[in-house]
Amino acid sequence: MATARTPQTFNLDRLTTPIGTALLVTDDGGVLRALDWDDYEGRMLELLRLHYGPVTLRDGRAPAEMRKALSDYFKGDLDRLTDVTWRVAGTPFQQKVWHALPKIRPGTTMSYGALAAKLKVPNAMRAVGHANGSNPISVVVPCHRLIGANGSLVKYGGGLERKRWLLRHEGVEI
């Protein structure tokens, strides 16, 4: 018999970036739980529901240090993303993928297959892709750095134009 999850309440803030308004979802401890784009708010809400169960968002400012780190990243200080504390619920495999993504350095990309091999599950390319697509923390957990085996951009939850911009911003020639 399934048990109902306790509803979660998170804070929602907005940050203007060169590629649109970012939605920052934080918990009461100031930890980032989701980052998505205002034109993809419905997708973000669905990912939050899948990871946490019932979720309520209330207006609330993200920590100043987090906002500054993200603003600095968009101004070109690419290493500032490591200063953002984040946490997300997910399966053990999703967690493994999501914790591997920040290890892909800015200015570099990796194929889904290469990440699967690095995680010692070489036949799990599709599972890596699925976990990557379920990542609710865009930019900070840099799912945009995963590309197709042939170098194609493939997919990005925030749209391929944003993915292209992020990769160029980080110095990747596309």
Rank of each mutant, 00 (worst) to 15 (best):
D13W: 00
A116D: 07
R67G: 01
H99N: 15
D39W: 06
W165Q: 01
L12N: 10
R105D: 12
L101I: 04
D36L: 08
G129N: 08
G29I: 01
L153M: 09
G148H: 11
L48A: 04
L167S: 12
G29V: 03
R5N: 07
L35H: 10
V55D: 02
A4W: 10
G157F: 07
T108L: 15
V141F: 05
R61L: 13
V84M: 02
W98D: 00
V172C: 11
A2V: 15
G53M: 03
H130I: 15
D27S: 00
V121Q: 14
V154P: 03
R105K: 15
L101P: 02
N11I: 02
K163L: 05
D39C: 03
V55T: 12
H99F: 08
W98S: 03
L146N: 06
Y52V: 00
L50A: 15
A69D: 02
G53L: 08
T109K: 11
E46A: 14
D77R: 14
A22S: 11
P63K: 10
G53E: 04
A131Q: 01
D38Y: 04
G30A: 00
A114S: 13
R145Q: 13
L153Y: 05
E173F: 04
H130W: 13
I174N: 02
G151D: 08
G60L: 13
A131H: 06
P63V: 11
R145M: 10
T17N: 02
L115N: 15
T91Y: 10
G113H: 10
T85V: 13
E161I: 07
V140E: 01
G157P: 05
G157Y: 04
N132L: 09
D28Q: 09
T26Y: 08
A22V: 06
S138W: 15
L81M: 08
R87T: 13
P122Q: 07
N150I: 07
V97E: 01
L119R: 04
G158K: 11
A149Q: 13
K68R: 14
A62E: 10
V141A: 06
I104H: 14
G171A: 04
Y112E: 08
R14L: 12
H169M: 02
V172L: 12
M110P: 08
E161S: 14
D38I: 11
P92Q: 09
R126S: 15
T9F: 00
T6Q: 09
K118C: 13
R58W: 00
H51I: 01
A34G: 06
G133W: 02
P63N: 11
A117L: 10
T91P: 09
R162C: 03
E173W: 05
L45Y: 02
H51R: 12
R164Q: 14
N132S: 14
G76D: 05
A62G: 12
R5F: 08
K120W: 00
G42M: 12
V31L: 05
A100H: 11
P63C: 10
A131S: 11
T3Y: 07
G60A: 12
R58F: 01
L15H: 10
R87W: 13
H130K: 13
C143T: 13
P63G: 11
V88P: 00
